[in-house]
């Protein structure tokens, strides 16, 4: 409950404990895997070696880890950008004209509840190559961004709109200077959530989609060969990229929305 803030020494302590926890974990892992000598429990060093091998020699088909990462991120990026380009303006528009959304709910809502992953087989049949992945990511990221924007526009504080209106501001001015800035934090949150879902979807799409490149298909290939250490490398890389992207979002949010943080502190 009480979030007691310790002084400088406490901070260092927390860091130290974390380092300790990590080393104990790795030590235990090493010991257990040595004792068990199981195919299913590689030692940390085997995993590290696999990582280096994947970087330098590539996987069973000679595709390097870098290539897999590049392919996955490129697909995510394309789908995500498309989702932003469509989701944000559409969200703002439908937020400003609630009638439109209210009258088309019967079409939008059912689509929202179909998990994007369920679209993959349909997409495999209808589309080819890169566009398959981009479409799935687009679908996965679109709804969080769109709905986040829409709800945020609807909940803009009416007083904030009345202020420029009382000065005789035009509609466009209000949208540009009031509606957009006050919805921006929510749009950003929607983007972060959308990116997370996109990241889930790309994994599934790559596993099912049939091409040989991409992190998802890489770990599935190794699953068929029962090479746990390579699967682990893939998972760690996936986690690291996910973490990194999330950090970028948080960093930008903190920089852009300083005014928001001031509210939190007080």
């Amino acid at each position: 409950m009480a979030n007691d803030k310790n002084a400088g020494s406490g901070k260092l302590g927390t860091f130290g404990y974390n380092a300790l926890a990590l080393s104990i974990f790795i030590l235990l892992w090493t010991i257990v895997s040595w004792i068990s000598e199981s195919l299913f429990l590689p030692t940390p060093w085997t995993v590290l070696k696999s990582f280096l091998d994947l970087c330098t020699y590539g996987d069973v088909e000679g595709i390097s880890l870098g290539m897999h990462i590049f392919k996955s991120t490129l697909r995510i990026f394309a789908g995500f950008v498309a989702a932003c380009i469509l989701g944000i303006p559409l969200g703002i528009l439908m937020g400003l004209y609630p009638r439109v959304y209210d009258s088309t709910k019967s079409v939008i809502e059912p689509i929202r509840f179909i998990p994007p992953v369920a679209w993959i087989p349909l997409v495999i049949v209808l589309l080819v190559g890169f566009s398959r992945y981009a479409f799935i990511i687009w679908l996965g990221a679109f709804f969080p961004i769109f709905i986040g924007t829409l709800l945020s526009v609807r909940s803009v504080n009416p007083t904030h709109i009345d202020v420029p209106r009382s000065f005789g501001a035009k509609r466009l001015y209000i949208i540009r200077k009031i509606v957009i800035p006050s919805t921006l934090p929510d749009i950003f949150t929607g983007m972060r959530v959308g990116m997370g879902i996109g990241w889930d979807c790309i994994m599934a799409a790559e596993m099912i989609g049939g091409e040989n490149e991409g992190l998802g298909v890489m770990i599935l290939k190794y699953a068929e060969l029962i090479r746990i250490e390579d699967i682990m490398v893939g998972m760690i890389v996936i986690g690291a990229i996910g973490f990194f992207i999330n950090e970028i979002f948080i960093f930008v949010e903190r920089r852009v929305f300083k005014w928001k943080e001031a509210i939190v502190i007080s």
């Binding site: 974390n18 380092a19 299913f40 992953v117 998802g216 599935l220």
Partner: peptide
């Protein structure tokens, strides 16, 4: 004090666990 063990796992997409689960 143990965040470092929990936090990284959070960022691994659950779907990426499927191959592991299969094995």
């Amino acid at each position: 004090r143990t965040r470092i063990l929990v936090e990284p796992i959070r960022f691994i997409s659950p779907i990426a666990w499927i191959p592991m689960a299969i094995v």
